[in-house]
Amino acid sequence: MKAFIPISVGNPVFTRDATEKLIARAEDLSQDVIIVVCDSLRIIANRLRSDQTQQEAITKARKATDDTIQMLKKLKTKSDRTRILKSSEFCEEFEFKNIEENVRKTTISNDILLNYISAVVLEYMRRIQIDSTVKNTLLETEYVLHETAISIYCTSVLKYNFEIYKDGGNGFIDYFSVWCKENMNNLKYVNDRKLLNWSDINMKTSLSGI
């Protein structure tokens, strides 16, 4: 078993204590653990939640990412095989760009997938009370597509087959993966991840109230 843990930069659930416990549980279960700091997603999120320009979003994301990395480096880990990787470190790679473009083209060219991601995006904006303007809808759609590509890259390229996610997971990632397996042949990049929620690895009690 090889597990990856996506860390949402700036998300208050990833306190030092909670993250250290999460990594320790992952190390108990997995021979290799990779902590994926999703800094590229933070840039999109910054623009979604404010009127920041692209450069302003990048600057603020970089500062938040540096803080997250510093926190992670101070944590105690049980294995020297546990490592930290920023999503921006592979987002410019050919394979990632190929995966992301495939996710985007497949989604926008299929009514079933397009309707599903639209519903996911609208529900999320409603839940966090953000106006469903054209700009916000496009940014949140981009966020979900980019997040899906990150998950597929970690699974199909880096070969980490277990994703440890804080809750029920991203509905579109799972829906997209199942749809592709059922409807597309000879896929080069397939998301064969197995999803473990925090509660699945006995984190619910230790993180009560988060």
Rank of each mutant, 00 (worst) to 15 (best):
20 E>Y: 08
189 Y>D: 03
18 A>S: 12
24 A>K: 14
192 D>M: 00
156 S>I: 03
202 N>S: 12
100 E>Q: 15
156 S>T: 08
108 I>K: 09
191 N>S: 04
106 T>Y: 04
119 A>E: 13
203 M>P: 11
210 I>W: 15
89 E>H: 13
5 I>H: 05
115 N>Y: 03
187 L>C: 03
135 K>V: 01
123 E>K: 15
66 D>P: 01
42 R>C: 07
193 R>P: 00
171 G>A: 03
9 V>M: 04
99 I>H: 09
65 T>V: 02
8 S>L: 02
102 N>R: 13
175 Y>T: 02
152 I>E: 09
91 C>P: 07
101 E>C: 04
68 T>K: 05
20 E>G: 11
53 T>A: 06
96 F>T: 13
11 N>A: 10
162 F>Y: 12
84 I>C: 09
141 T>E: 05
149 A>K: 09
176 F>C: 04
162 F>L: 07
98 N>K: 15
201 I>S: 10
127 R>Y: 13
69 I>Q: 10
13 V>F: 15
148 T>A: 12
94 F>M: 09
86 K>N: 14
121 V>N: 14
209 G>P: 06
203 M>A: 06
172 F>W: 10
130 I>K: 10
1 M>K: 08
147 E>G: 06
143 Y>G: 03
34 I>P: 07
138 L>K: 08
185 N>H: 03
63 K>I: 06
180 C>L: 02
44 I>F: 11
121 V>E: 12
203 M>K: 12
12 P>N: 04
29 L>P: 03
181 K>S: 01
122 L>A: 11
191 N>P: 00
137 T>R: 13
197 N>M: 03
126 R>F: 07
28 D>W: 02
57 A>H: 10
105 K>F: 02
42 R>G: 01
103 V>I: 08
19 T>L: 08
81 R>I: 00
130 I>R: 08
210 I>A: 14
74 K>M: 05
85 L>K: 15
13 V>G: 11
78 K>T: 01
14 F>L: 07
186 N>I: 00
150 I>S: 05
82 T>K: 05
32 D>P: 05
200 D>N: 06
66 D>G: 08
38 C>D: 07
210 I>H: 15
202 N>Y: 10
159 K>E: 06
40 S>K: 09
63 K>E: 12
120 V>N: 11
52 Q>H: 13
103 V>A: 08
150 I>F: 10
121 V>T: 12
114 L>Q: 10
177 S>C: 00
69 I>T: 04
137 T>F: 13
189 Y>T: 00
76 K>G: 03
166 K>W: 05
45 A>S: 15
202 N>I: 00
188 K>S: 02
60 K>M: 05
62 R>W: 07
16 R>G: 06
83 R>K: 14
43 I>R: 15
190 V>Y: 05
81 R>V: 00
183 N>R: 01
152 I>S: 07
159 K>T: 02
45 A>G: 10
195 L>F: 06
193 R>E: 01
12 P>Y: 04
139 L>G: 12
47 R>L: 03
109 S>H: 09
60 K>G: 00
172 F>R: 09
164 I>G: 08
157 V>L: 09
124 Y>W: 12
154 C>E: 11
73 K>A: 04
105 K>H: 04
84 I>P: 10
175 Y>S: 01
55 Q>I: 04
178 V>Q: 10
65 T>F: 02
6 P>Y: 02
30 S>W: 01
52 Q>G: 05
18 A>F: 14
166 K>M: 00
133 T>L: 04
73 K>R: 12
136 N>C: 05
186 N>D: 08
98 N>E: 15
